[in-house]
């Protein structure tokens, strides 16, 4: 793999760090979620090309999925 970027290698690959980020499908849309301490999912990012999806309350970043 060759990265073509003005960033330094240290900026991209720092020391190891644990996260619980996942990509899941929710209501037919791909979303990026973080698993919270209580085992629920918190929406981080919506992956969609439809601008209307971003106006939908269901896909507001930070929302805890029911």
């Amino acid at each position: 793999m060759i990265l073509y970027t003005p960033l330094t290698q240290e900026e991209i690959f720092p020391e190891e760090e644990n996260t619980n980020r996942e990509y899941i499908t929710y209501e037919g849309r791909s979303i990026c979620v973080d698993k919270t301490a209580e085992g629920r999912y918190q929406l981080v990012q919506l992956l969609s090309t439809d601008p209307q999806d971003f106006l939908d309350d269901k896909f507001t970043p930070g929302r805890i999925l029911p």
């Binding site: 793999m1 970027t5 991209i12 720092p14 190891e16 760090e17 980020r21 439809d50 601008p51 209307q52």
Partner: peptide
């Protein structure tokens, strides 16, 4: 029901990630 948009938006943000998964803070 919002009318279907005839224009779609593709945002390319941060690092373009390829064959290797980058650390999560990227």
């Amino acid at each position: 029901a919002a009318p279907d948009s005839n224009i779609h938006v593709l945002s390319i943000i941060g690092q373009v990630e390829g064959h290797i998964q980058l650390p999560p803070q990227n």
